[in-house]
């Protein structure tokens, strides 16, 4: 079998607030023998504001996709927002020749045929690498962790090609393969954290985040696995402000940090020190 090779689109957050996501994705993929080629000169996908003009969103995303397509590579995008924009663009360009023509006209010096596919690291790990392989590589099972797998909105919605928008299971399966106890976090696993309203409607946004933490505790979780920098912003640095006095915080991790840990990668390389809600206690509980 050919070694797995992808174009890598980190996106803006992974260079700043979500740098441990970036580090852990790279470390885990490297350990599993999956090669990531960072897209040269990548640009911001435009996130939610770009959705005010579909063509702008397609073009900003398309410029990044064109680099990968020209090299015959599929794209891996860990940030949910970027994944959604890039994936939507790839799907639209593939499905609709009129969109393709328009996007290419705007892109000018580069162009897309629609061949490129966009994958979330979850898909690569579960589908391309495979749970069996990951299970085989686990050297430090995560026994003792009771994980609420939290997908957020944009990995599975509006649609991807690998998991259900209502009850996704890829992360559940992955965490179970690492030897962790996975709590049943349906239906909260796909509920919105409110992140998009953090600046404009802070009270509402924090209320949504608090609800997620409380529900996870109710389900018996002692930690939460994340896959999105925006969710992370809400559930790590802003978890404190979201909770009321006396409410117990819940340590959260990028799911790739947890995989790295189970694969025996040095925790320092995985950016555990960068967490705001202290993970010390729950990590100490790891048998």
């Amino acid at each position: 079998m050919n070694p797995l090779r992808y174009a890598y689109y980190p996106g803006c957050s992974l260079t700043t607030s979500a740098k441990e996501y970036d580090r852990s994705v790279r470390a885990v993929f490297d350990a599993l023998g999956v090669e990531l080629l960072e897209i040269e000169g990548w640009n911001c996908c435009g996130a939610t504001p770009a959705s005010q003009n579909e063509l702008l969103m397609y073009a900003l995303s398309g410029r990044n996709l064109a680099w990968a397509e020209a090299r015959g590579l599929d794209v891996v995008a860990p940030c949910s927002e970027c994944f959604k924009n890039l994936n939507k663009t790839a799907q639209a360009v593939r499905a609709d020749p009129a969109v393709r023509a328009e996007v290419n006209a705007v892109l000018g010096d580069v162009s897309l045929t629609g061949k490129v596919r966009v994958k979330h690291p979850l898909e690569v790990l579960v589908r391309d690498v495979g749970l069996e392989e990951i299970r085989r590589r686990v050297t430090r099972p995560l026994a003792g962790l009771k994980i609420a797998p939290y997908y957020g909105c944009l990995i599975t919605r509006p649609r991807n090609e690998f998991d259900s928008p209502e009850n996704p299971t890829a992360m559940d399966d992955l965490m179970a393969a690492l030897g962790a106890e996975v709590v049943d976090y349906f239906p909260y696993k796909t509920r919105c954290c409110g992140g998009a309203l953090l600046l404009s409607n802070k009270r509402i946004a924090l209320g949504m985040t608090r609800d997620l933490v409380i529900k996870a505790h109710q389900r018996g979780a002692n930690s939460m696995a994340l896959a999105c920098p925006m969710c992370d912003m809400m559930l790590d640095p802003y978890q404190g402000p979201a909770l009321r006095a006396g409410e117990k915080p819940l340590p959260t991790f990028y799911f790739t940090q947890l995989i790295g840990l189970a694969l025996g990668i040095d925790p320092d390389q995985l950016g555990f020190a960068d967490r705001v809600v202290s993970p010390r206690e729950v990590l100490a509980a790891l048998s």
Binding site: S51, Q52, E54, L154
Partner: peptide, 29 residues
């Protein structure tokens, strides 16, 4: 402006209306 772009509406709409994207376009307009 209150839409979080969570796409919950879009995936469930029985008439396949892309509500979230429509709200996004209205913001642009």
């Amino acid at each position: 402006w209150m839409c979080t772009t969570c796409y919950s509406c879009t995936v469930r709409c029985p008439r396949d209306i892309h509500v979230t994207d429509i709200l996004g376009k209205l913001r642009g307009i």
